[in-house]
Design a protein around this nucleic acid. Structure first.
Lengths: 352, 352
DNA sequence: CATTTTTGCACAATCGATGGTGCAATGAAT
DNA sequence: ATTCATTGCACCATCGATTGTGCAAAAATG
């Protein structure tokens, strides 16, 4: 495990070796040397020495001096689902293409943890930050503002910083309509057979519920409060909600709008407790796309949010000098059952 | 967006305000003040001022001085699948519980990118590093060694640093046996009906292939090279392999061992092109667990690798002063069809 | 009261890189 | 041969925290 923990070379080492001053070495190695009128030959000498000795800059030192770091952060609620992990994947690609270093951290939907984590990132002089699905975006904003950190909300909007989110209302309308239309005329769905499960009191859930109700009233002439079951974002709570419904009604609603893939996992847990027959006539719409979810034994219609689009827009906004505090809506896409979409992984070359 | 970008308070600011020296302030705020015999009352004064002014240490400065950072890194091949995103989730929990800051980065299975990324992490004086599923673990090792960075390989072993991996051989035996036994006596599977798809020439794939063949010979008295189709780790290549097989044989093999959930996505893409009837008599075993995958319309048996166990072991090893370069095998678990396991997300409280 | 010990803290060097400023040597212009 | 402009680089302060050392004042000891 250990060998020569030869201390890393610094500009001082190279300065001695090359007979130039540290500032010259620094200038040569960070690219500002032309501006400093360093001779081509001097530069060359130093560059040679640098890679002979495998010099790499100490980025903490650089960051300390310049109060920038070359780091770009992505704050996630959680890693462990396809929506957010795709987001991480797209994010990384973007940041790398700009020559910076992406770092991804999650804060477990805990407002306190969100703020603490961002504090830490700030302490490392992170240059920019994308705040995804934060429980308390404005709390995070307050922390960022104190240090002038550029940031954009994504997925869930805040009121103090620019936000890029899915058009949840439209998406929910599309999804709900698709569920309804998936039933043939003779097996037509009634208003009290179409339920929404999952989500909580955040902007996305509210908009989705609004869209769900609107289209329900338009197409089925009916809706009621009992058709909405917010369960929070946990598989467990969702499962419990399904179990309770099933006990009460002896079956699941034939039309099911599930607020997120995380909540969908609650349905999986429910399924594990019941035979496939309980799901034969069911149609599920899920507001999130998961490739495996798309092929379950009953029709699953999904919404794929345009993650690429959101990330791209977010970076555009951060590039502006004085971005306006507004919320940009990105259109999501309806995914019919049994569909395997390409994802960010397809951009990666496989060396086989 | 902008308000008072009031510069962050430093120990110098607090030193002026409190009438003590910067070193005293530093000692009070980093906990070493008892050792320095600072009066309780002085300490209290400084602490009060500190949170009045929302002081937080500049971690780049601290890191520069102490050449440590409080950061712990996880290097992933990719984010976007449940195996690695679960790993990220578990990793974060571990690191946070130790009071450090987790950072997760991916390197796209590109050896060059792996090394570059680790270089960057080192430049930030990351304290420890877990290298997961690296394409070139020994290359990464070489970079780490140069700077004395503690690191452990996980998922794929290296020859120069301690490694913690799944017992892929045993896992593959379990999985293969489960596939075989899933067929009833009268529909018994023949040796040429059981294929392995996916993976490439890495340690994990080789071991899985070895386990697959061993049990195949034991239970079916037969095996052949044409039953193995390595496709690399990409959905696309796997899809192509399935298509080719299907064209050649007119059907898929009834028994299918898929090397990873990423390759499984190749099967999904294939499925999207063919009606469900093509899969009625199929049994799939997948070396990776994905909750949605477990509920597909045909029996899917999965292997769940013990991610928690691997992470825990990895941190144990890094805690040793002089860890021995060996490979630790962690037993994976067989997951029967239609099973929804709890995951790292269940540890997160939901505020509903 | 004189001396030793302890308490409580200040000083200053240091980590590695950056960037403003200044100055000698060279070449050009008069 | 002077004067002036340009070239090519060195010097030094700085970013914010850590830590070894030193020293006065207070307390303990004789």
């Amino acid at each position: 495990m250990e060998h020569q923990p030869k201390k890393k070379a610094t500009i001082y080492d190279l300065s001695v070796l090359s007979g130039s001053s540290p500032s010259t070495v620094s200038a040569v190695l960070n690219g500002t040397w032309r501006k400093r009128r360093i001779k081509e030959s001097t530069a060359e000498l130093i560059r040679d020495l640098a890679d002979q000795h495998q010099y790499t800059a100490n980025l903490q030192a650089r960051g300390l001096r310049s109060s920038r770091s070359g780091l770009v952060g992505l704050l996630l609620p959680v890693h462990d689902n396809r929506y957010f992990s795709s987001m991480a994947q797209s994010f990384e690609a973007h940041v790398r293409s700009r020559g910076q270093c992406p770092i991804v951290v999650s804060a477990c939907r805990d407002p306190e943890e969100e703020r603490r984590t961002v504090e830490t990132l700030i302490s490392y002089s992170v240059d920019e930050l994308i705040v995804a699905g934060a429980t308390d975006p404005d709390g995070v904003h307050a922390v960022c503002i104190g240090s002038g950190l550029k940031h954009v909300n994504i997925d869930l909007p805040g009121s103090k910083a620019p936000s890029v989110i899915s058009d949840n209302y439209q998406g929910a309308r599309m999804l709900t309509e698709a569920i309804i239309r998936h039933f043939s005329e003779d097996l037509k769905l009634g208003p009290d057979e179409l339920y929404l499960f999952g989500g909580r009191d955040d902007h996305a859930s509210r908009e989705r519920i609004r869209g769900f109700r609107a289209i329900k009233r338009e197409l089925m002439q009916g809706d009621s409060d009992k058709c909405i079951e917010p369960t929070g974002y946990s598989p467990n709570m969702a499962q419990i909600a399904f179990e309770r419904f099933y006990e009460r009604e002896g079956k699941l609603p034939r039309g099911l709008f599930i607020n997120s893939s995380i909540n969908f996992e609650g349905l999986l847990r429910f399924m594990a407790q019941h035979p496939n027959e309980a799901f034969m006539d069911i149609v599920v719409g899920c507001y999130d796309y998961d490739p495996f979810g798309s092929f379950l034994p009953f029709p699953v219609i999904m919404i794929r949010q345009d993650i690429e689009g959101m990330i791209t827009k977010a970076f555009e906004i951060m590039a502006e000098s004085r971005p306006s505090v507004q919320t940009y809506l990105i259109q999501p896409e309806l995914v019919p059952p049994r569909t395997a979409l390409k994802g960010p992984l397809d951009a990666i070359k496989d060396i086989a």
